[in-house]
Design a binder for these strands. Sequence first.
DNA 1: ATTATGATGCAACTAAGTTGCACATGAGAT
DNA 2: ATCTCATGTGCAACTTAGTTGCATCATAAT
Lengths: 137, 137
Amino acid sequence: MEKTITDILHENELKATTIRIQVLSTLMESPSAMSHQAISNALADESLDKVTLYRTLSIFTEKGILHKIPTEDRNWLYALSPEVEKKAHAHFVCDGCEKVFCFPVAGAEEIVTLPKPGFQITSQELLLHGYCPTCHE
Amino acid sequence: MEKTITDILHENELKATTIRIQVLSTLMESPSAMSHQAISNALADESLDKVTLYRTLSIFTEKGILHKIPTEDRNWLYALSPEVEKKAHAHFVCDGCEKVFCFPVAGAEEIVTLPKPGFQITSQELLLHGYCPTCHE
DNA sequence: ATTATGATGCAACTAAGTTGCACATGAGAT
DNA sequence: ATCTCATGTGCAACTTAGTTGCATCATAAT
């Protein structure tokens, strides 16, 4: 049986309100990570207070339902957290449309780096730049 | 012969003003990347206008002398650009002191990922979390 | 249906970063 | 060394993102 959005919210001790369901389903349908503003626009017709959206996004992030990605232009993008653990996680930034896609990287454990002595690495994330399928030159 | 800060500025068609020299030498002496605020504090005794510092940092970034690193808490950190090309570049975030260290990664070319079909990768950056030498548990 | 707790919406606020413009300074020409 | 002009700097005012406090409203358990 499919897990519903309401189930996800309840698992995280959050009430299943209209706004939360709308925000989550918007992000589920989006192929790329979205900013506060983008989500706000997507839900423009429903009267949505900006404060409520900020609070919704930050509680989702605290609970680990979403994670946020800081961008070059000092914004945050939000995307669903992959079910898998965070270690194997990559963000792909398209240099054409500037969208950020977020997908797990198989084999992230094999990423080999040469840390300076004394530095302990606990997790790693890969940031990729390039062109997405609709933008490639 | 050693390349002076003044030389670096002139190479980039920038006048060697007191402020620029102070900002650059502050960053050169810092082991970790610094925020606008941190630099501002470091130069607190010299009367330094915030706007001038913003402009200084952004022109250095444009010229490629510095690069900026967006952080989780919606700030920018600035660090000297490594002389080498950007592809082999890692940012290490200490989960103890929250400082960001920035160093080249030998063998970055060997980072293997599994991009989804249609995605073209042009550059990659590695973000590491862990503990720096003075903070390790 | 009732109710307590958690969620929402509004207004006012904070703080980061930007813009325009007048004044000051570095660096080449004299 | 001084002059000159393009480039940098500093101030004030502004913009925009994000936060806080509080009163009101809705979900979910009884």
